[in-house]
Design a protein around this nucleic acid. Structure first.
Lengths: 341, 341
DNA sequence: CCGTTTCATGTTAGCGTTAACAGTGCGCCA
DNA sequence: TGGCGCACTGTTAACGCTAACATGAAACGG
């Protein structure tokens, strides 16, 4: 008697498969698969039976198997420095909102500002065969460039507007932000200007705003603005020496390149009895608190949510097979005049 | 001549596979797979050759195929209402920080406070065969319960402490927060208390804090606190009528259950010339701005990041096959005495 | 009325990995 | 010296789905 080989222990997960639905509905697995992905291609009777069968057996498609077979994961990844800062959490929300209606899910990675983490995340995400990738900044060291090129997926850089992006980019010009505020100050008749930035060299955002501010002031023929770069521009007590320096230089309008600082400065100025904007006009970056203080602060709003949303739309177009000519999208920003200037 | 069947067009992706590495290294695919997942099981010579081969051919493992074969995705999903609010973005960060060292990635879904979205997300995540799930709140309607039960994965509810959780839960008691602040007021000698909450009925967080505050006041024999539930507790102008009502009732200490409100109230009180805490003591929920104003606000800090971190640790233990006896983790909160009380 | 297109469905063969099992060779000990 | 265990590596067959191709019937058009 021929010895049959020992039956291999099943690896099955015991869960409901597409085959079970097919049997229940009296059609082939392929027809069930079609019904789920492109219902229009399936006849009405079969559709009804399949729908009932799916419900009856409690079928939840295994998208992992689907991804492997179709070579599309319907997952898009996004890399941000941290989710603790709303300015970086918002684009994740925007990206998700853009992609969810099309059946995509969002995988998030946080780098904690470490470039090597970015590289590791890119490898991990490519390994998961994500269909698209959004990266905050995006240093893209050589290994990453190769991995990304080999993957052949669309990639969007966020918050940057390089002349020649790696693939696509969505961001805004910090120079333009600085320039806009300088122009506003000039328009309102202020002339002894100052700008408070952030000393951290890696904070290119703040640096760009300072540069743009000064350049525009020069262009308009105003005296060179006072530039202050405190290390840690946060607490009330840090604001006092800054106010002293502004007073010494007879500054009549100051632009704070971080959202918290403008609020702190304003509170401190008021408690000193300074009139805002009479003695000192203050412009800043928008936040919830910019509208809560008295007077509300004239501010520039950076469209963090939109950065993610636009990135999502770009990715979707590419994922739909479209050739997207725009490689750089400038989201711009909103200038909001309030009481403080 | 036997007609050979037309060669089926290849579905290959043209990308480097484990087979390519195996050929290059002169070993079997299985050995390469082992080297990648459990290097200790592979001999030193083979290891060296495989390592070189991986580099030479630029291999990035296809984790989708791996997930299908092993029935483990090494992905954990988290569902939050929105990422725009740091209190919900922080747990995502915490979860990621807990899981990343173990090679897990985080898939995020946002519900925008819609219960039906929660259900759709749960289905989608289960379809992707996530290994674990964290859900903010977690209403878990019947269909979701079934899907989750069938999936047999660990599930953590965030921010809740139900007596009988669906599976596991990490959160804190809002009642206890209210009680703590009431006790603090009593300790400092205040007796005419008030609490400002939020009218929105779905805001169970605020409701719990109000209840706990009043209960503790009663327990300590203080007069019944004044309870105010404004619709939209945000702007300076909204704060003025609140201050009027507090004055009418001769309130000497007020607890604001939302972080912004305490700041707004304090700024307004000061601009009216009220002494804080002399005329009115103010307690709140901690935020960046609670420390920025003058005086800094006595506040309770809710450990949003820790909620995610602890959830991650719970999930990891279960994913490691451990039986976890604790089904409810109370993260507690921190009381921070500052100048405003 | 017959070739051609269209529609609906079925059959087959992977997608790229890992679980399960099967050696093979060596060291060790009775 | 033979038997056993251990360390390492290889072979085979899934995992659950979908792309590609095949088939048959209905619709269509000159």
């Amino acid at each position: 008697m021929a010895r049959s080989p020992a039956p291999r222990r099943s690896r099955g997960t015991g869960r409901v498969r597409i085959e079970d639905v097919a049997r229940e509905a009296g059609v082939s697995a392929q027809t069930v698969s079609r019904f789920l992905r492109a219902p229009a291609q399936v006849g009405p009777e079969a559709s009804a039976r399949i729908e009932a069968a799916v419900r009856a057996v409690g079928y939840v498609p295994n998208l992992v198997a689907g991804s492997l077979a179709s070579n599309r994961s319907r997952i898009v990844a996004i890399i941000v420095p941290t989710l603790a800062n709303p300015v970086h959490a918002q684009p994740v929300q925007g990206l998700g909102d853009a992609l969810r209606p099309q059946g995509y899910q969002v995988l998030v990675g946080t780098t904690d500002f470490q470039a090597e983490t970015e590289e590791a995340l890119i490898r991990a995400f490519i390994g998961r065969r994500v269909d698209g990738l959004a990266v905050t900044g995006g240093s893209f060291a050589e290994p990453s460039r190769q991995v990304l090129a080999a993957a052949g997926i669309p990639v969007v850089q966020l918050w940057e507007l390089p002349e020649d992006p790696f693939d696509m980019t969505v961001g805004l010009s910090n120079d333009a932000i600085g320039a806009r505020m300088a122009a506003h100050f000039a328009e309102r008749g202020y002339s002894r200007l100052a700008v408070i930035g952030h000393a951290e060299a890696s904070d290119t955002r703040s640096a760009g705003r300072v540069t743009g501010f000064c350049a525009e002031a020069a262009r308009l023929g105003l005296p060179e603005p006072l530039v202050l770069l405190p290390e840690r521009p946060m607490l009330i007590r840090d604001a006092a020496p800054l106010l002293d320096r502004l007073a010494e230089a007879h500054v009549d309008a100051v632009f704070c390149t971080s959202s918290q600082l403008s609020v702190v400065l304003l509170l401190n100025a008021r408690s000193r009895g300074l009139a805002v904007p009479g003695d000192l006009a203050i412009g800043g970056i928008d936040s919830d608190f910019a509208t809560v203080v008295e007077p509300a602060i004239t501010a520039i709003r950076v469209p963090a949510y939109d950065v993610g949303l636009q990135a999502g739309h770009l990715l979707l177009r590419r994922l739909a097979g479209e050739t997207v000519p725009e490689r750089r999208i400038d989201t711009g920003f909103t200038f909001i005049q309030r009481g403080s200037t």
